[in-house]
């Protein structure tokens, strides 16, 4: 759990990228992403099923030591729903649940808007939040999204290393927005990455939860240059702004259900289109998929992604992430071999 946060009770722990941070921010609460330190070590906690995804298990394990008083779970996958059930029994506290639709029809948007309205009331102990406060936080989050989209666009033209941007995203998730964005901007202006990025083949990184900076480093150390990603806390997280005007809850629900989808949403076609778009726009030579072990949502998309890119003649590397360090050596070898394949133009 994020140890840098003050141990105050205004934190709201969140896990899924589909959680609208705008709502707790509007209510003066501090959204805190729970990462479980991105690693599983030691004995498996017998309270949680050992074949649930390692992200969920790592968060559960870390929560036994330190956790925010309030946590919000979204209906993003089976593992997350079960984590919610266990959390209530094992840790208690104020536990919220967002009934997140898997489709993005207008009816689903209206339903989700109602769910969000209910959540905001729960957070404010039954009182309706002020619209003005919500619009302020929506504007603020749109600004954050635009800022990070700017950084990712520099990644796309090889002006910034992907690992640097991902680390800054992590910092933003840990520290208050205002000071963090300013510090990141100052740091970026002081750095000149042009020329240091190498001329390695460009790749697109596709994953769900990739909390392991070391895997991103391995990709770069192997001589590959990540020029775009399809990852929960990567470009997908910052895709599309909330349209300002009308009912704020409808606007939020619309943005979250219409954005670049994660594998949990119905319609793998849209995800494939976005992947294809960035691959072509950025002239990437291949795709690296880092798939989360036991994540059913992303597992079922893998053959379809492979099929799509195989037909286009785009090389693809599949790596399995089980949140342990035991596979890192093997990953390095495979990444280096993949770099050679891309170099030789297979």
């Amino acid at each position: 759990m994020e140890s840098h946060r003050p141990a105050s009770d205004n934190r709201v722990g969140w896990l899924c990228s589909y959680t609208p941070m705008e709502i707790p921010l509007a209510l003066g609460l501090l959204p805190t992403r729970m990462s479980g330190q991105g690693r599983i070590s030691g004995a498996t906690d017998p309270r949680i099923y050992h074949l649930l995804c390692p992200y969920v298990r790592s968060v559960f394990k870390a929560a036994a030591q330190l956790r925010p008083e309030r946590v919000v779970f979204a209906r993003c996958c089976d593992a997350m729903v079960r984590l919610h059930d266990l959390w209530k029994v094992c840790f208690g506290g104020k536990v919220h649940f967002l009934d997140l639709p898997k489709i993005s029809s207008p009816e689903a948007v209206s339903y989700f808007a109602n769910v969000l309205r209910g959540w905001a009331k729960e957070l404010r102990d039954g009182a309706e939040p002020e619209e003005e406060e919500l619009w302020d936080s929506i504007t603020e989050m749109n600004r954050v999204r635009a800022f990070f989209r700017g950084l990712f666009s520099e990644v796309a033209r090889r002006a910034l290393p992907y690992s640097w941007v991902r680390e800054r995203v992590r910092l933003w998730l840990e520290y208050p927005t205002e000071g963090t964005l300013k510090a990141i901007e100052e740091e970026r202006q002081a750095l000149h990455f042009d020329g240091k990025m190498g001329k390695g083949p460009g790749v697109i990184l596709s994953s769900t939860m990739l909390d392991q900076g070391e895997i991103v480093s391995l990709i770069e150390e192997a001589g590959l240059v990540v020029v775009g990603d399809d990852e929960c806390l990567g470009e997908r997280h910052f895709h599309m702004d909330v349209e300002e005007g009308g009912d704020p809850f409808e606007a939020l629900a619309h943005r979250y259900l219409q954005r670049w989808p994660c594998p949990r949403m119905k319609g793998v076609g849209r995800r494939l289109e976005e992947l294809e778009r960035i691959l072509e726009e950025r002239g990437a030579a291949g795709v690296v998929i880092v798939y989360l072990k036991f994540c059913d949502q992303s597992s079922f998309d893998i053959p379809l992604i492979q099929e799509k890119f195989r037909k286009k003649g785009v090389p693809l590397l599949l790596l399995e992430n089980d949140y342990t360090s035991s596979a890192l050596g093997q990953m390095r070898t495979r990444l280096e071999a993949f770099r050679e394949i891309l170099h030789e133009g297979f």
């Binding site: 949680i48 099923y49 074949l51 089976d78 593992a79 729903v81 079960r82 059930d85 036991f294 059913d296």
Partner: peptide
């Protein structure tokens, strides 16, 4: 059933 996350994930609650 080993890969069934939704059923096995609820085991602790069932057992208790």
């Amino acid at each position: 059933h080993l890969p069934c996350r939704q059923a096995n994930g609820a085991l602790k609650l069932l057992r208790d």
